[in-house]
Each structure stands twice: as C-alpha cells, then as structure tokens.
Write a protein that binds this DNA or RNA. Sequence first.
DNA 1: ATGGAACCGTACCGTACGGTACGCCTGCGA
DNA 2: TCGCAGGCGTACCGTACGGTACGGTTCCAT
Lengths: 215, 215
Amino acid sequence: MSMTIKVNEETFTPRQQAVLTAALDLLVENGDGLTMTAVARRASCSKETLYKWFGDRDGLLTATVQWQAAKVRMPQVDRSHLNARMLRLSVEQFARDLLTVIIGEVSITLNRTAITHATQEKDRLGNIVLENGPLAIRRRLKPILEAGRDARLLRFPSSEDAYRTFFGLVVRDVQIRLLLGDSALTQSNVEANIEADVKAATDQFFALYGVKADQ
Amino acid sequence: MSMTIKVNEETFTPRQQAVLTAALDLLVENGDGLTMTAVARRASCSKETLYKWFGDRDGLLTATVQWQAAKVRMPQVDRSHLNARMLRLSVEQFARDLLTVIIGEVSITLNRTAITHATQEKDRLGNIVLENGPLAIRRRLKPILEAGRDARLLRFPSSEDAYRTFFGLVVRDVQIRLLLGDSALTQSNVEANIEADVKAATDQFFALYGVKADQ
DNA sequence: ATGGAACCGTACCGTACGGTACGCCTGCGA
DNA sequence: TCGCAGGCGTACCGTACGGTACGGTTCCAT
C-alpha cells in the first residue's frame, strides 16, 4: 500500500510540469476541490494520461505539492566572517523570508491541502510541507545560530528551542489566521507590515538571546 | 447571502446535543469525511431529522463547530489586586490554558475542519473557530496586560502587539505541526513539556515586556 | 380510544467524480 | 509509405454521498 514515488529531482518532463502547474493553479483557485477532469481540461491533456503519469488522484496531488514545495528556496547566507552586524542581518533575512513565504497564496494553499489530507491519516502531504517549510528553514538557520553562539554573540541552552522561539516571534498568529481565512487579515494588509514585523521580531529575538544588548 | 444563525445560547435540546456530540466524535475520528448517514446511524436518528433540524450538511457542521467551540471556556482571572506575582501567575495561567487547548484533539479537529472549509471561500467556520479560539483569549488577556501596564509592571506600545507576541512565544510551531500531522510530535510528547514550555514562554514574555526584571 | 405530531429506519433519486476504455489524430522511425 | 507509440477527447461505469419520500412506531393531548 502507498508506494513511495520518487519525485525528488527533475523527474518531470516539461509537459508534465505544465500539468502540475495547471493542478497547482486549480488548487489555489478551488482549493482541495481538485478534479481530475478539471486538471485534464486545464492542461489540455486526457485523464488517461494523468493516470498513466501519476497513478491516481493522490499521486497527482502529492507530485504537485512536492514539486511546488521544493521550489521554495531561500537564499543561502554567508557564514564565513560573522560579526554582530552580519549575524543580525542574517537573522533578519531569515525572518523576512519566513514571513514572505508563509503569507504567500501558494504556501497557504499547500498548507491547507496538506492539513485537509492529514485528516485522513494520510500525513504524506503534511510531511512534505513540513519538510520543505518550517524544517527547511530550521536546517538552514540552526548553523547560523550555533555559529553565533560559538562567536559569543548569542547565548541559548538549545538551538532547537532558540529556533522555535524565533519561529514564534516571527509568525505569531499570522499563519493560523490566514489559514482560517480571517477576513480582517488580507494579504496586502500583512505585506505592508512585513518590514516592521521583521524588525520587531529580530529585535525581540536578540533581546532574548543576544549576549550584549546588541544595538 | 450567508445568514447568521443564532446558536449562541442553549438553543439545542438534549437530543440535539446528543446528535452534535455524535457528529463531533465522527469528526475527530474520520476528519471532514463527515457523512450524514454516518451521523444519523451514530446518533440513532433519521437523516430526515438531521435535515429538519440543521438544514443541510453545512448547517450541521456549523452547529457542531460552534457548539463545541463555545464550550472552550477558560477560567476568569482575578484582576482586582494586581501585584507582580499575581500578574505573572495570570499570564502563566493564560499560557497554560492556551497551550492545553491548542494541543487538544478536539481543537485540532475543529481547526482542521475550519481550514478545510476556508478553502471554498466558506470562512464561516474559520471565523467561528477564530472567534472562540485565539480571539477569545485575546479579549481576556488584553485587559490583564493593560492593567499590568497601568500598574507600571509592564511596558508595551500596543497591547495588540503584546498579545500577538505572547501568542507566538507560547504556541511557536506546535500548532501548525500538529495540524500537519507531524509524526515527530505526538500529543503525549507535547503534554509532558507543557509546564516547562509555559514557564519558558512566560519568562520570555516578561523579559520582553516586564518593567523591572521581574524575578 | 383517537388523531396527530415527532421521529426512526430505509429505500430511493440525482449528481459528482474517480477511474477505465476506446476511437482518432499526430509525429516519427524504418 | 507504412506502422506504431504516445497522447487527446470523450463516452462510459461504479460508487459514494447529499438530499427526499414514505411507511411504521411511539407518545401525548384531547
């Protein structure tokens, strides 16, 4: 049951990627009401082709989510010469990237889809989103934090806890409210405040973990 | 469009509440795969009765979510004599309540259901959950925070921002990971750390907003 | 006792959608 | 030119489920 399909690399032909794009578009538009017929029509292909390429509806969904989630790549941060200013800029950049991704329409759609699917003990999509979302950032932020600690710029008992606090300070209640469709929180509304929020979160993070009242 | 149905008070007979309980149980078990037939069977009633009472499937779902969400009540905190110790205990209690609610199976189910529904531009459930979840806590925490500020125990520019930071410090990435079905985060796993997390979050909150290095 | 309201159980209908089958077209290699 | 593989479009099937109809039962008021 539930074969693990390899879709990590560029296993998709351009034609297949066009199909996945169509699927993603429909996902963003109609939510999880994704219909094989609709995808076929949108991508101008036959349903039979869809089934040949992706096995079944779940396979198509998985491929779409994984393919799209993997596209979310954040810029690598220079870790070589690490002074207080560079560290702060790096953390700030992570905050900005995290916030920008999280409020994006695609991210919201992917998270909603994965959460909807996690309901039926099918947590594959959930794991994919987790892996490419929060965990990807964690993997990349942790070394920075630890480098900061080694350089006596930061102090924390556990880099894991430091990361999770960072996540909380940045995301706060924005993500859950967007996922729930909070009408008081439009995307443009949030976007306008990104810079202020990023600065505030970074300030707070350094207030909690910075060694010498940085700035 | 989208009438607002009054279900705030005890508009439900015991029999109806039994039906709603059955619906909630099925929701927790099977997720949004809620079937009218299943509810009828579980509650030992006829589908016709369901439709007579709740209009349609969406009405039943709405009634269930609203009825259940409204049951989440947090203990009122004594606000009369507010010294540093009382304030800290209050905030800590809020953190504990918030975390306890959020990791509960019922809360997760309700949030998942609401998010699933927010997908089809039906954000009614989302608003209900928001209203009875985060916003309920906010309404109750804000006065405490402002009382703390008036008593010169706390300092913050905006109580709104203070609340949202509190939310982030407490919830961090726990909720989204649970919603996504993160297998590395079982409920018992989180439960065991509640007290430590609550203390840490409270410490951090006072570190950021406390006036005189409280404790 | 009798009428009726409420409700249970079940059969039934219509539709939407996942999945399959098949006929047709196009492009390409021999 | 022929054959064939890949793929499009469409028709089709089975099923699951929302919603309705209806007969039978219980219970209460008159």
